[in-house]
């Protein structure tokens, strides 16, 4: 392997970057000066190697296509410590969410659970299905616990939600 191979041959894509900036309504949330404070406190750093400062810088430099295709986007725990403490009021969290949206638009592989949640919302209005809770030998559900029945979304909701999902 030559020395050159050690470096990424990727080229920045400024069009993709513009797309991310437009989703973020400008550059403010990407205006990072690399103090690393976000990464020092990132919940997903130790186990999943998410480095928010790197996401910020890559987005800034235009390496958006790589980010969109990368699994790293899906490691964010959304604990929001990065945006809370950022001295430049940048927001790795929002950048990551914008990149996730872009990944979906481009139909890159994304964790199944997210798509499942969306289709569940479409079907039932809710992102999750009712569960029976087991404790000891007994099982409980809303009915046995005498919790009120919750109605399904009215007709027309599905179409509207689908329409909302079309927005880019």
């Amino acid at each position: 392997m030559s020395l050159v191979d050690l470096m990424s041959m990727a080229k920045p894509n400024l069009k993709s970057r513009a797309k991310v900036f437009s989703k973020l309504k400008g550059r403010d949330l990407v205006n990072c000066f690399q103090c690393i404070k976000c990464t020092s406190g990132c919940t997903a750093l130790k186990l999943l190697e998410l480095k928010p400062h790197e996401v910020e810088k890559l987005a800034n430099l235009g390496f958006v296509d790589e980010l969109v295709a990368s699994d790293i986007l899906w490691t964010c725990v959304t604990c929001l410590k990065c945006i809370q403490r950022c001295p430049q009021k940048a927001s790795p969290y929002h950048v990551i969410m914008a990149l996730r949206n872009l990944a979906v638009e481009r139909e890159v592989k994304i964790p199944e659970a997210f798509m499942k949640a969306v289709s569940q919302v479409l079907e039932t209005g809710m992102a999750e299905a009712y569960q029976k809770i087991a404790k000891g030998t007994e099982t409980f559900d809303r009915e046995s616990l005498k919790l009120p029945r919750i109605g399904s979304p009215r007709e027309g909701f599905q179409a509207l939600f689908l329409k909302a999902l079309e927005e880019k």
């Binding site: 969410m97 996730r100 949206n101 979906v104 994304i110 659970a113 997210f114 798509m115 949640a117 969306v118 919302v121 039932t124 209005g125 809710m126 992102a127 919750i150 109605g151 399904s152 979304p153 009215r154 909701f157 909302a164 999902l165 927005e167």
Partner: peptide
């Protein structure tokens, strides 16, 4: 009605 707040959808759209 039962409804999702949008949280898991946020990552998608």
């Amino acid at each position: 009605e039962a409804l999702c707040c949008g949280d898991p959808v946020k990552s998608v759209n």
